[in-house]
């Protein structure tokens, strides 16, 4: 699964993108976030406060109970500050 990170989430994790293999237990965005937090201290710290984390699946912002699969493009970032 391909994951993109933006803004300070990217800075804290230390990469713009990473590819991870996921088990069948990971069915939703929430499952994925919990899994990512086990990968490293950097992941754990970056994703510690879920209230300031947003997720897009295939370029649409989704709730954390959204189902995901291996082919989806996932992006994780803080609230957007355009304009």
């Amino acid at each position: 699964m391909n994951i993109k990170y933006f803004s300070w989430v990217k800075d804290q994790i230390g990469t713009e993108t990473e590819t991870i293999s996921i088990s069948k237990d990971i069915k939703t965005v929430n499952d994925l976030i919990l899994h990512l937090k086990t990968l490293s201290e950097k992941h754990k710290n970056a994703l510690s406060d879920i209230s300031i984390i947003r997720c897009a699946v295939n370029m649409e912002v989704v709730n954390f109970d959204k189902d995901i699969n291996e082919q989806d493009e996932i992006a994780i970032f803080p609230p957007m500050t355009g304009g």
Partner: peptide, 8 residues
């Protein structure tokens, strides 16, 4: 666009 367009 301030809250929905993915800019940081």
């Amino acid at each position: 666009l301030k809250t929905k367009a993915p800019f940081w």
